[in-house]
């Protein structure tokens, strides 16, 4: 493989996704590339197909037509288990296992990958301090004993555990109060820069998109309307983008 190919981690080639019961396609003729090291934010209202796009990457779904390539290989050809273990996944509320302690949740993939125990433990304590949870205090707790923000941090730590090259985040901060959300966003930004991870981040919050994204993909009704850097997004004349930007101005004026 050439150097240019390695620059691209994920590629959507004319991808459509339809469900038999629903007439309108959920994703329609999507073309998209995600470059190594960038944070691509998919912005859109609920039902626009952004979560479906995410699930097409780690083969939770397979495209109806077109191809999704991860590291140059179609997801159809990937072994689903291997692909998913190379892809960190964070969802709202973290999707933590309620019957596992924080430590067990984070160590899940390393243990599935049969890392030796010493390495797993070291990795867990490293991740806990990375996401700002002192390991002594939190490692033995169960998710129900954590606040929403703490659960979300554990969710991120779990997704990072086996050092996957790619992170998928589906509105990870959506259920948090604004102050916690702001602090987690800052920390994520910091983390993304430090670790140089590639991430696809789904949100309906334009501020979050502008803050975190190295590029923003605006989606509506299963189509990609716009794919721009935050600077260019701010200047865009696209009506949907304009509508989002107006909400920002309303806040500023108030």
């Amino acid at each position: 493989m050439g150097a240019t190919n390695q620059q691209i981690l994920v590629e959507f080639r004319d991808v459509s996704y339809t469900v038999p019961a629903v007439s309108a396609p959920i994703i329609s003729h999507l073309n998209l590339t995600v470059r190594n090291g960038e944070t691509l934010v998919l912005l859109g209202e609920s039902g626009c197909g952004k979560t479906t796009t995410l699930k097409l990457v780690n083969r939770l779904l397979l495209p109806t037509t077109g191809t999704v390539l991860v590291e140059g290989q179609s997801t159809v050809e990937w072994d689903a288990i291997r692909l998913r273990r190379r892809t960190g996944y964070v969802i709202q509320e973290g999707g933590l296992f309620p019957h596992f302690t924080v430590e067990q949740n984070i160590a899940l993939v390393p243990r599935l990958e049969k890392w030796d125990e010493a390495r797993t433990r070291e990795r867990v304590s490293q991740l806990l301090s990375l996401v700002g949870l002192g390991s002594n205090e939190f490692a033995g707790r169960y998710p129900a004993e954590l606040s929403g923000g703490q659960r979300q941090r554990v969710g991120v730590a779990r997704a990072l555990a086996a050092e996957p090259p790619l992170l998928l985040l589906d509105e990870p901060f959506g259920a948090l109060d604004p102050l916690t959300r702001a602090s987690l966003q800052r920390e994520f930004l910091d983390l993304a820069k430090r670790l140089g991870k590639t991430a696809i981040f789904v949100t309906h919050d334009v501020r979050e998109a502008l803050l975190l994204g190295s590029r923003i993909g605006l989606m509506a009704a299963g189509r990609l309307l716009l794919l721009e850097t935050p600077e260019n997004f701010l200047k865009s004349k696209e009506p949907h983008a304009q509508a989002y930007l107006e909400t920002l101005q309303l806040v500023r004026q108030a």
Binding site: A80, R82, R85, I91, E93, G95, R158
Partner: peptide, 10 residues
């Protein structure tokens, strides 16, 4: 959500 997370973890 928990089941989906489990699938997505591989």
């Amino acid at each position: 959500n928990v089941r989906e997370a489990a699938v997505a973890m591989g």
